[in-house]
Each structure stands twice: as C-alpha cells, then as structure tokens.
Simulated scan of single mutants.
Amino acid sequence: MVEPYAKINLNSGFENYGFGFEDASYEYRLDGFTVVQGLVRVNKTLTNNEVLGQFQYPYSGHTPTNGTLRFPVVSEKGVIAVDITTSGQIIVRGEAGSWISLSGIVFNTHAKG
C-alpha cells in the first residue's frame, strides 16, 4: 500500500518538463521507502550545490532520517549527483544541462545508521 504521489515544489529556474513526462513528485510507501520520479527542465545556469526544490509534506517521515543521501541521476550532460537532505531539499551537484531526471531515486526512511 502507498500514499498518493505528492508534488515536489520546484525553485525558480526549474519546472516540470511536460510533453507527457512525469512531473517531479514522490510517494511514501508504507514499507518505509520513499520513491522519487519526474523529469525537470532547467531554465538557468546552475552553480554547484543548487537547490532544485523541496518535498511537499502531507505526512512526516518522508525524508532521510540519518543525514543527507546522494544519488546518481541522469541529466542532459550525463550522470550527475543529487542530494536529498533530512529537511527534504533536493540539491543538484554538477552541470546538468537543460534537464534532470529524478526517476530511480528510492530510499528507506526507517533505516538506522
């Protein structure tokens, strides 16, 4: 059983890609995993450590519990790193080009470090 997908609030310079691609969103599964998806258009020149957006919380406990997690994601420029913090910020690490895919990010919110 899962909670419905919740949107990711995108910061200025980022928007959902559109054209039939999934919007930036996440779902919290009752087994303790959070699943992130979506394709995001980048409308500005990125600096390192750029905050792409923030999880929108219908419930607590959807973010990493023991510190920031780093994930490899695909972008127009190749594989880059994206961090998800305990506060729900999504931070881009590196040059992404014009789009970033968030699909494939999955993490356990119940894991103890």
Rank of each mutant, 00 (worst) to 15 (best):
M1D: 13
V2P: 01
V2Y: 12
P4Q: 08
P4I: 03
N11F: 07
N11D: 14
F14Y: 12
N16I: 01
N16P: 03
Y17L: 07
G18I: 04
G18N: 10
F19C: 13
G20H: 08
G20R: 10
F21K: 06
A24I: 02
A24M: 03
S25T: 08
E27G: 07
R29C: 12
L30W: 07
L30T: 09
G32H: 12
V36C: 04
V36M: 05
V36Q: 02
V40T: 10
V40C: 04
V42L: 09
V42K: 01
V42M: 10
N43T: 08
K44V: 02
T45I: 10
L46F: 08
L46N: 05
L46M: 13
G53M: 07
Q54W: 10
F55T: 00
F55S: 00
F55R: 00
Y59L: 14
H62C: 08
N66V: 06
G67F: 10
L69D: 01
L69W: 11
V73Y: 04
V74K: 06
V74S: 09
V74A: 12
S75P: 09
S75A: 15
V79G: 02
I80K: 08
A81D: 15
V82D: 04
D83H: 08
T85R: 02
T86L: 06
S87D: 15
G88P: 01
I90E: 00
I91W: 12
I91Q: 04
I91G: 01
G94I: 06
E95P: 00
A96N: 03
A96E: 00
S98L: 07
I100F: 02
S101T: 10
S101F: 01
S101R: 02
L102N: 01
S103D: 09
G104F: 10
V106D: 12
V106R: 11
F107C: 02
N108D: 15
T109V: 05
H110N: 11
A111F: 13
K112P: 03
G113P: 02
